[in-house]
């Protein structure tokens, strides 16, 4: 299961736009990941490396 480091995250929403399984919702204050398939796409995208 991927995890978002809240201290690093800029809430830019990019991870939600690349997730091939539509598992990610980025609200104005948090990233919600549901039913993650662990493909790692969001990790490669993140501009700050907030996803592990």
């Amino acid at each position: 299961m991927v995890k978002v480091n809240k201290d690093m995250c800029m809430l830019c929403g990019g991870c939600a736009s690349v997730c091939p399984y539509n598992c990610i919702t980025v609200t104005e204050r948090e990233v919600i990941i549901e039913n993650c398939k662990e493909c790692g796409t969001c990790i490669k995208f993140c501009p700050v490396g907030a996803i592990e």
């Binding site: 690349v18 997730c19 796409t41 993140c46 501009p47």
Partner: peptide, 11 residues
């Protein structure tokens, strides 16, 4: 949904 090749990661 955008493939990683077709999105820019910006900072």
């Amino acid at each position: 949904t955008l493939p990683l090749r077709y999105i820019e990661s910006c900072y």
